[in-house]
Nucleic acid binder design. Structure first.
Lengths: 246, 246
DNA sequence: CGTAAAATTGACGCTAATCAAGGTCCGTGG
DNA sequence: CCACGGACCTTGATTAGCGTCAATTTTACG
């Protein structure tokens, strides 16, 4: 992890424009908040924080992608989410006086702004809108997690994998001639850990999709060719194509 | 739902003593906050709010138990949690400007305090500690949901049911001579909806446990006789008893 | 070009979902 | 008081889905 440094103006503008934390704050206030934070870089494979550590810092991602990982008692990994620019890390936790419940790993080289939790609390005391913005970020994350909980308790593996892909595409997809490219490192194992299954099932499912022309690949990266078909699978409405199962 | 009314003093003391929302607030401030809320009763089977409704009210439960239910697109129910006295309802959501992501049903006659979301925001602006207490409640709920997400993606059904029971016992268990009584209405279907399975599996599992003397029942209510055994099952450490499976 | 990591594919067995049939408990009304 | 109906529970049979292991192939990269 590189030492902290000052942000330049372009970076400041970027973060205030795209992060909910700065919603409805005057440029003046934004400047104060940013001055109390520290600019930092995290190399690929390094961690922002580890599960179980005392949560004393919170972050907002400027560049790069971060993987949120939970480790079970038995040592299994569960990938809770991927985050990109504008997302907050440890916001909920640092403000709740509990240890980080998961680890945050940079899957690419990342830059971020970091605040000490007490500094942020002090800022929120002075600027209640900042606290409400924090609450709003948390609310969305909470609703999203609840939806995923619902998915994993009611959907079959194939649907869960489809949904995971669609979610990633919505977050990180880039349009290319053949369709939408998921321009990020993403192994079968990763997808398995996101969907509560194993890499063998994911591999089988994706092979099937590739043969059906729904997805393709460029090097190790996934290309979504027929998004609508994947939506049908995700919604369990693809019965027409396959053998009826009820 | 009965009309709103004033709280009496005993009720006021109860809520300020047991709810995190009032932590580190002076009695004076507590009084102000409570005066801005409304006392209310909800009959068994009635709802505090429904999934999808605009979230304009937040609650703290005084008495009774509440079931949080999510409905999937396909119409399946998922029980996210049970809450009892001292817990908050809609706190996250009402402060985040998003619709309720689930429904809250009173499984017993309940009393609660309700605040309008804008009133609460105003109070939080004046008393930042109130906002931080809200954040702390949310933080615990978030960590708990993440843990359950982890469970459901890595554990087998029997372990999940064991964990669900243990969680309910910790929340609502009452000591009786034979063990710990779960003094609440709880059908096989309810347990199935909590653990992402169906009532048949739950019934089979609980029949097995009852034959092994781990649990018992009084009318329709569950009694936990050998909690330690259930913990072993929940932690997947009961291999000694059964046939080895690896 | 060689090695290690990642992905594929087949075989096998178990878990858990599903369907069907019947039983138990309870309140209600004849 | 007893018979009936409905909600809830139990149990068996069956099967699809999924996890696991093993063997092999492909891909990335030094």
């Amino acid at each position: 992890m590189l030492p902290y440094a000052r942000m330049n103006l372009a970076q400041q503008e970027k973060i205030t424009a795209q992060c909910v934390l700065f919603k409805d704050l005057s440029p003046e206030v934004c400047r104060i908040v940013l001055q109390n934070g520290r600019f930092m870089s995290v190399n690929q494979g390094e961690y922002f924080f580890h599960q179980g550590e005392t949560a004393d810092t919170l972050y907002v991602i400027l560049n790069g992608r971060v993987k949120l990982i939970q480790l079970t008692d038995a040592g299994q990994q569960v990938i809770v989410n991927y985050f990109g620019a504008g997302a907050g890390l440890g916001i909920i936790v640092a403000l709740s006086n509990i240890p980080y419940p998961l680890s945050a790993e940079a899957v690419e080289a990342c830059t971020a702004v970091a605040w000490n939790k007490d500094t942020m609390k002090q800022l929120m005391r002075q600027q209640p809108q900042l606290a409400f913005n924090g609450l709003e970020m948390i609310g969305h994350r909470f609703a999203q997690l609840q939806k995923r909980f619902q998915d994993i308790s009611t959907q079959r593996v194939e649907q869960r994998v489809a949904r995971a892909l669609l979610r990633l595409v919505r977050q990180f997809g880039k349009r290319i001639p053949q369709g939408v490219l998921l321009d990020m490192p993403l192994s079968r194992e990763d997808l398995a850990q996101m969907t509560g299954t194993n890499l063998y099932n994911v591999s089988r499912i994706m092979s099937k999709w590739e043969q059906a022309g729904i997805i393709g690949h460029d090097h190790r990266k996934v290309i979504l060719c027929k998004a609508h078909e994947l939506v049908l699978i995700a919604e369990d409405l693809d019965i027409l194509d396959r053998s009826p199962k009820k």
